[in-house]
C-alpha cells in the first residue's frame, strides 16, 4: 500500500512539474515535428526514386520513427531531471524516506513515460494526413506499444542519469548513444538497403523491434507494407523484455549505497 502511494505521488510530481514548465512541452513536441517536416519533405524526392514498398512517401515512412523520436525526447528530458533533483537537494529527502528504491525508480520512469505517451498520441492524430488511417482498435494497440517503448527509453535514461552530476554530461552520452540508437532503428532509413555491418547493428538494436511494432500496428491488416519487418509477436516480446531489463538495471544502480 505504501509502495503504491509512494509511486503515485512521485508520478504525480513529474506530471505537475512538466505542466508548470511550458517550454518543455513546446520542445518535446515541436522538435520532432520540425525534424519530420523538414527531413521528410526534403528527402522525400530522393527516396521516391529508390522505390518504397507500396509507393510509400518518405513523410509516411518516417512517421513511426518520428513517434519514437518524440518518445525519446520526452523520456530523456524527464529522466534528466533526476540530475536536477540531486542538485537541488530534492532527491536526498526522498532517499531518506522509508521508500524502496524500486518505487523511486518506478515513480520517475512511469512519470516520464506517461508524459511521452501523451505527446506521442497528440502527434498520432496527424497520421491521416499522410494516408495512415486510424481505428479505435489501432489506437488502443498503439497506446500499449508506445507506452512500452517510452518505459524502456525512460528506464535507460534513468540508468544513465543516476550517476551523473551534470546535465551537460548527459547530453554528451545522449548524442553518442541514444541518437544513434534511434537512427539505427529503422526509423530514419530501412535496414534492407544498408551495408551488412549496419544491418547487423539495426537487428541488434532493441528499439528496432519497438519501431517495427509501431509500424505493424499502424498498418494493421495491410501486410504488404511490411515485408522485411520482424514478426509482431517477436517485436512485442523483445520490447517488453528489454523494458523490464532496463528497469531492473535502473533500480539496481539506484540501490547502490552512496559514495
Amino acid at each position: 500500500m505504501g509502495y503504491v502511494l509512494a509511486v503515485t505521488t512521485l508520478w504525480r510530481r513529474e506530471i505537475v512539474r512538466f505542466l508548470r514548465q511550458r517550454n518543455r512541452i513546446v520542445g518535446a513536441l515541436g522538435t520532432p515535428l520540425v525534424f519530420w517536416l523538414l527531413i521528410g519533405s526534403g528527402l522525400g524526392s530522393s527516396f521516391r526514386s529508390s522505390g518504397f514498398p507500396g509507393g510509400e512517401r518518405y513523410l509516411e515512412y518516417s512517421f513511426p520513427g518520428t513517434l519514437a523520436l518524440i518518445l525519446l525526447f520526452t523520456s530523456i528530458f524527464s529522466t534528466i531531471s533526476i540530475i536536477e533533483d540531486r542538485q537541488t537537494g530534492f532527491l536526498q529527502s526522498v532517499l531518506v524516506a522509508p521508500v524502496r528504491r524500486s518505487a523511486i525508480t518506478l515513480g520517475k520512469v512511469l512519470g516520464s513515460s506517461s508524459l511521452a505517451l501523451v505527446q506521442a498520441l497528440i502527434f498520432l492524430t496527424l497520421a491521416p494526413t499522410v494516408g495512415i488511417g486510424l481505428t479505435p482498435g489501432k489506437v488502443v494497440l498503439l497506446c500499449g506499444i508506445l507506452f512500452l517503448i517510452a518505459f524502456e527509453l525512460s528506464a535507460i535514461g534513468y540508468f544513465i542519469a543516476w550517476k551523473m552530476d551534470s546535465t551537460q554530461g548527459f547530453h554528451a552520452i545522449m548524442n553518442l548513444f541514444l541518437m544513434p540508437m534511434w537512427l539505427l532503428s529503422g526509423s530514419f532509413f530501412p535496414a534492407s538497403g544498408a551495408p551488412a555491418w549496419l544491418r547487423w547493428l539495426v537487428h541488434a538494436n532493441p528499439l528496432t523491434y519497438g519501431i517495427a511494432a509501431v509500424r505493424r500496428a499502424l498498418y494493421l491488416g495491410h501486410v504488404q507494407s511490411a515485408p522485411d519487418l520482424p514478426p509482431f509477436g517477436l517485436c512485442l516480446t523483445v520490447t517488453a523484455l528489454f523494458a523490464a531489463l532496463a528497469f531492473a538495471a535502473a533500480t539496481l544502480v539506484a540501490s547502490q549505497p552512496a559514495r
Binding site: L10, V16, Q92, S93
Partner: peptide, 24 residues
C-alpha cells in the same frame, strides 16, 4: 537537511503533501 530539499516548482502545500505520501 542544511541544503534545501524542496521542489521549487511545487507549492508549499504540494511539497508537504508528497512528503506525507512518502511516509505512508
Amino acid at each position: 537537511f542544511q541544503s534545501p530539499s524542496l521542489d521549487k516548482k511545487l507549492s508549499v502545500e504540494e511539497n508537504v503533501l508528497h512528503h506525507g505520501h512518502l511516509y505512508g
